[in-house]
């Protein structure tokens, strides 16, 4: 895919590395001259120096025909303008941006930006999800991110406590692979095993479904 990265600082480095490894064609537009020089010295990719909220800068960078544009400015209003130019004037089908103000997630989506990410928002959401489940230990992506393995410890307040596994409704492509009991015993569960407080569950699921699984454990 041809991906345009407009604006941003530290996150840009990480994103470039990551996307390049996955074989995407990249175009970078950044208003900081020194940063552009650094990028073009380290990476073999087109880097354009200029303010991406300016139409002529986007035009010079030749972004027409790109598949995705990611806007990473620190100012939310700049991200909106860049994504709207990309969509309307350069016909880029997918636009993604970050926002500082979590309230802008919904607003920007209503104003036509395809995907709006707010880190504050994601942290808040995570904390709400994790509130009744004690420790969300870690997530391990497997098979190029096609499977996630993660673990949770049941606090004792979850409604699934005392139930058979068979009574639980988990999302598709999800399995509780292993239970470590509070006393350290390891169980590869069957449908008749009952969950109790202090159990640590190792769960295999499809990426992006972790929230659904946590919700299912809480309901």
């Amino acid at each position: 895919m041809h991906i345009v990265i407009a604006g941003g600082y530290e996150q840009t480095d990480f994103l470039i590395e990551n996307l390049k490894e996955n074989g995407h064609k990249l175009t970078v537009i950044n208003a900081h001259k020194e940063y552009c020089e650094k990028l073009s010295a380290h990476h073999d990719l087109p880097v354009f120096h200029g303010d991406p909220t300016r139409f002529y800068v986007l035009n010079e960078a030749g972004i027409e025909g790109a598949d995705v544009l990611v806007s990473l400015s620190e100012r939310d209003e700049n991200n909106l303008a860049v994504c709207q130019f990309a969509k309307k004037c350069f016909h880029i089908p997918h636009t993604v941006c970050t926002v500082r103000n979590p309230k802008n997630v919904q607003l920007f989506q209503e104003l036509g930006v395809g995907h709006v990410l707010s880190s504050t928002h994601m942290v808040a959401k995570f904390l709400t999800e994790a509130a009744t489940i004690q420790d969300l230990v870690e997530t391990l992506p497997l098979e190029d991110n096609r499977v996630n393995l993660f673990s949770v410890v049941l606090k004792g307040e979850e409604p699934c406590i005392g139930r058979n596994l068979i009574q639980m409704t988990l999302p598709g492509n999800t399995i509780i692979g292993c239970i470590i009991r509070a006393n350290g015993a390891m169980v590869v569960p069957s449908g008749t095993d009952v969950l109790s407080a202090g159990d640590k569950l190792y769960i295999l699921t499809a990426p992006g479904q972790q929230d659904l699984v946590l919700k299912a454990l809480k309901e």
Partner: peptide, 28 residues
């Protein structure tokens, strides 16, 4: 310009203010 674009779109699309003006230095 970016801020005026955002403000005008909030006024027009979210709050449906009947008449909305926006000042833009860049005619694009």
């Amino acid at each position: 310009d970016s801020r005026n674009n955002l403000l005008a779109q909030i006024a027009c699309r979210i709050y449906e203010v009947p008449t909305v003006f926006a000042r833009f230095d860049d005619a694009n």
